[in-house]
Amino acid sequence: MIGYIMLGTNDLDRATKFYADLLSLLGAKQAMTDPGRFVGWSNGKGPMLAVTKPHDGNKATFGNGTMVALAADSQETVNKVHAKALSLGGTDEGAPGLRGGTFYGGYFRDLDGNKLVVFHM
């Protein structure tokens, strides 16, 4: 049902480097770009994730209660992606671990404050 997800950024170059490094761990490659406006990645298995400068020209802000979930193929990949996000300047929102019995996830915020979780079930 979901075709793509766009996260706002105020520094497209910085966000592009963050996500290119991070999403490569999930097998994603750059799939689409509009130079100076947005860059998107896909692993060919699900929706594209893109970073964008807001179309209206206003400052990008993150949504309170908004979160993007990135599916991983193992708990080890969850650990790697979470650690990579922090090494790239992201902030920890919850260390990787088992939650609710079968859900293993690690939470972080990107460089613009967008909240994400990488998970395996």
Rank of each mutant, 00 (worst) to 15 (best):
K84H: 06
G65L: 02
N43K: 01
A83P: 04
S42M: 05
F103G: 03
G100D: 10
Y19H: 05
L111D: 07
R14M: 08
L86R: 02
A60E: 01
M1A: 14
L26W: 09
G94H: 09
K29G: 11
D110I: 03
G97H: 04
T77Y: 04
N43G: 06
N58S: 13
V117E: 14
Q30T: 14
E76G: 12
L111F: 07
W41R: 00
M48W: 09
L70M: 04
M67G: 04
G65F: 05
T52P: 01
V39M: 03
F38G: 02
G36K: 01
A20C: 04
T61A: 11
L12R: 08
I2N: 01
D92C: 07
G63V: 13
G40D: 01
G94E: 03
S74D: 11
P35Q: 03
A72N: 05
F119P: 01
G94V: 04
F119Q: 10
R14Q: 10
A60I: 09
V39A: 02
A95Y: 08
A15S: 15
L49H: 06
G46F: 08
V68M: 03
V39T: 13
H120R: 03
G44H: 11
P54L: 13
T66A: 15
T102D: 13
A31E: 15
I2S: 01
A15D: 10
A50C: 15
G40E: 06
S87P: 10
A71H: 11
T16C: 08
K115Q: 14
S42Y: 04
D21N: 12
A50H: 10
G57F: 04
S87Q: 12
K29R: 15
L116V: 06
V51M: 09
F18A: 02
A20D: 15
A85P: 06
F103H: 14
G101Q: 11
V118P: 05
T33W: 00
L25M: 10
F119S: 11
G8S: 07
Y19K: 00
G44D: 14
Q75C: 10
M121T: 13
L12N: 05
M48D: 13
G57L: 04
V78E: 04
M6H: 06
V117M: 10
D56T: 08
T77M: 12
L116Y: 05
L12H: 06
K45P: 02
K45E: 15
A31K: 13
G113K: 07
M121E: 13
I5H: 03
M32D: 15
N114A: 08
I2A: 02
N43M: 01
K80G: 06
D13E: 14
K59P: 07
F119M: 12
I2W: 02
K115F: 02
V81E: 01
I2D: 01
D112A: 14
A60Q: 10
L86W: 07
G36H: 01
L86P: 05
P96G: 03
Y107I: 02
F38V: 06
T61E: 14
G106M: 03
Y4R: 14
L23I: 09
F62C: 12
M32T: 06
D112H: 02
A69H: 12
A95P: 07
H55V: 12
K53M: 15
Y104I: 09
L111C: 07
R14N: 07
A72Q: 04
T91Q: 10
W41G: 01
A69R: 04
Q75E: 15
N43W: 03
D112N: 15
S42K: 00
G113R: 08
